[in-house]
Simulated scan of single mutants.
Amino acid sequence: MAGRRHHYLPQLIQRPFAFRQSGKEFYVRAYHRTRGRFTPNTAGLGKELDFYGGPEDTSLDDAMTSGEGELAKVVQALNRGEHPSPIEMATLVCALAFRTKAMRDALAGMMPAIVSALRIKVLDISRIRRDLLASLNDPKERKRQIFQAIDSGPPQSREQRAKAYAALLPAWKKYVSAREDELVGQAWATASLVMDKIRSEATNMAQASYLEVLSRDPTVPARARKLVEEMVFTVIQAPEGQSFILGDCGPVARFSDGKSRLVLGAVNQDADIEHIFLPISPSRCIHARVPSSTWWPSAAEINKISASLSVEFFISDRESGEDLEALRESIGTLDPVDSEEDIIQELLDQAE
């Protein structure tokens, strides 16, 4: 166990950006969305209390910590100019992509949109009317409702219940027709209460889902294998006089619709990942791309994507620069997946 303050941006990826080392302590230049520039120790940067769960269950944090040794070896090998296998690079990308605060917040942000889309569907009055009437006129449901009404009165024998059912059955359609608006209104009100409760708990639901998915395997091996099958992995060198930054979002991606998002993916089913970038030092960046893509981004373009998709800060090896201040101002300006409006519309379109 590494304590209750957990790194969502692990030190193994921060340390290559350090401008100073003192023993086992590494210091970086961090550019924060609200705090400006400061020079923290990586031991305290990119951490949050109980990020991977509380002290009652440390299994996920323990698993994350134990797996960092192999990931660190890949980062170190790449920064020595060696050539780890594509699956090792893909595993590093996937392990860092899903564990960040940016990814958790993105999932939490998606949940209200998903609930809103569901609410629109569920509370469609014409749909409620159609489904309710179909249900009430279903033979099994009709029988259940009639016997429920019979049993709400005085106790009766089996024969008496059967006679009562036979007497009431012919009047069922008339009963439903007469009370149609009232029944539909009751069904809508009940559904609305349920959806309001779900919406109020959406963030907690998203957090629980995030931890559940992450606990299955912190390195997400299936996703790593899929990336290797679909993409070519290389390492980009920063041109002389330029350098990469590391955003607190970790890896970032560019999609076939021209938008940049987190590696999680797009809600739009027609938007596929074409590029993934993970800076591993000021001079090196892992680049995965689909073979058909001909777009070759500059270091400045990669940096803009990383900063814009970050939640709070990015790290640079440089002490100052107009471009760094511009990047700091761009922190959090891109939707990590899609806007809430786009998510709602896409989900509604998919449900048609």
Rank of each mutant, 00 (worst) to 15 (best):
Q160A: 15
Q160R: 08
R161N: 09
A162Q: 13
K163W: 06
K163E: 15
Y165K: 04
L168H: 06
L169A: 14
L169N: 04
L169F: 02
P170G: 04
A171D: 15
A171V: 11
K174H: 10
Y175E: 10
V176L: 00
V176I: 09
S177E: 14
S177L: 11
S177H: 10
A178K: 12
A178T: 01
R179F: 11
R179Y: 10
D181I: 12
E182R: 12
E182Q: 11
E182A: 13
E182I: 12
L183P: 01
L183R: 08
L183I: 00
V184C: 00
V184M: 00
V184F: 00
V184H: 01
G185C: 00
G185K: 00
Q186Y: 08
A187I: 00
W188K: 14
W188F: 13
W188V: 12
A189W: 01
A189Q: 14
A189Y: 04
T190Q: 10
A191V: 00
V194L: 09
M195G: 00
D196R: 03
D196A: 00
D196E: 14
K197H: 10
K197Y: 12
I198M: 13
I198C: 01
I198L: 12
R199D: 15
S200D: 13
A202N: 08
A202W: 05
A202C: 03
T203H: 07
T203C: 05
T203W: 06
T203M: 09
A206D: 03
A206W: 02
A208E: 09
A208W: 03
S209R: 08
S209G: 13
S209Y: 04
L211E: 02
L211A: 03
E212H: 07
E212D: 15
E212C: 08
V213Q: 11
V213R: 11
L214F: 00
S215A: 11
S215H: 02
R216Y: 04
R216I: 08
D217N: 15
D217V: 02
P218C: 08
P218D: 05
V220K: 08
V220G: 01
P221M: 01
A222M: 04
A222Y: 06
A222W: 06
R223I: 15
A224V: 06
K226R: 14
K226D: 14
K226T: 13
L227H: 07
V228G: 06
E229M: 10
M231C: 04
M231H: 12
M231G: 02
V232E: 15
V232L: 10
F233M: 13
F233R: 08
V235I: 15
V235M: 07
I236L: 14
Q237F: 02
A238K: 10
A238F: 07
E240V: 13
G241H: 06
S243G: 10
F244Y: 14
I245H: 04
I245P: 01
I245E: 02
I245A: 07
L246S: 03
D248E: 03
C249M: 09
G250V: 01
G250Y: 03
G250T: 05
P251C: 03
V252E: 02
A253S: 13
A253N: 07
R254F: 03
F255Y: 15
F255G: 07
F255H: 09
S256Y: 06
S256Q: 10
D257T: 14
D257A: 13
G258K: 09
K259I: 04
K259M: 04
S260G: 12
S260Q: 11
S260P: 04
R261Q: 10
R261I: 08
V263R: 05
V263W: 07
G265H: 05
A266N: 06
V267D: 10
V267P: 05
